[in-house]
Simulated assay, not measured.
Amino acid sequence: MMLILVGYMGSGKSIIGRELAKVLNYDYVDFDDFIEIQENASIKTIFETKGEIYFRKAESKYLDKIIKLKKTIVSLGGGTPCYGNNMERILDSNESTSIYLKANIPTLSKRLFDERCKRPLIAHINTIEQLNEFIGKHLFERAAFYERSNMSIKTDDKSVEEVVESILLQLF
C-alpha cells in the first residue's frame, strides 16, 4: 500500500508523512524534494527561471514515477492534485490511499507567515491579512480537489502524534 498526503501548503504533509513512515516502517518521499533532485534545481529556482506552467507539467511527469511505489508515504506539493488530471491519476491508483490533511485559514497563515521566502507562491505577501486573503482564495479553488481524497483528517490544534494516530485509526 502507498499513502499519498494532499493538502494546502502548511497543512503538515511533510512532517506528518515522515512520522507516519516511521510508524509504519514505510519509505518516505517528499514530492517537492523529489522534483528538485530530478530537475537539479530548487522549486523556487524552477518557478523563477522556467515558470509555473513548466513546473506543473514537471509535477505531472514525476507523479507517474512516484505513484508506482509500494510501502511508501508521499507528501505531495499543495498544488499537485489541482492541475491536469493529477487527482484522477491518484484516485485511479489501486495501490494507494489519498489523505487530505485539512487545516483552516488561521492555522495555515500562522504556520506559513514566517516561511514565505521559501514558498514561491506567497513570497510577495507582506502582512498576515494579505496571507489570510490569499489562502482563502486558494483554498476556495483547491478544496474541491483535496476533498476528493479517500480520507480527510483535520490538523488544527493537533500534535503530529495525534494526526498520525487519527490516520492510523481510519486506515486500520
Rank of each mutant, 00 (worst) to 15 (best):
K70T: 02
V163K: 06
I16L: 08
C117P: 00
R142A: 11
K22T: 08
L24A: 05
E19V: 03
P81L: 04
T107V: 07
S109Y: 12
E48I: 09
G10L: 11
E52V: 09
K158Y: 00
Q130E: 15
C117R: 11
I99C: 10
V74A: 08
F31Y: 03
F140M: 12
K110A: 09
I67Y: 11
V23E: 05
I90Y: 05
E165R: 14
K137D: 13
S75N: 02
T45P: 00
R148P: 01
S11Q: 12
L139E: 15
Y28Q: 04
K158N: 04
L171H: 03
M87C: 06
E162Y: 03
D64Y: 07
V160T: 11
G17Y: 08
S11V: 06
N85V: 02
L101Y: 10
V163L: 04
A41Y: 02
L63E: 07
I37S: 14
I66T: 13
E161T: 08
G84M: 02
K61D: 00
N94P: 01
D92S: 09
Q38A: 10
M9P: 14
N126I: 01
Y26F: 13
K57F: 06
I90D: 02
N40A: 15
S42H: 05
I153D: 02
S159P: 01
I67V: 07
T45H: 07
D157A: 03
K118D: 12
F34Q: 03
H124C: 10
T72G: 00
S93D: 14
L24I: 02
G79S: 11
I53E: 14
G78V: 05
Y54Q: 00
E165Q: 08
K137P: 04
G79A: 10
E161L: 04
L76T: 09
L121H: 09
D64V: 05
K110F: 13
P106E: 10
Q130Y: 03
N40I: 04
F34V: 02
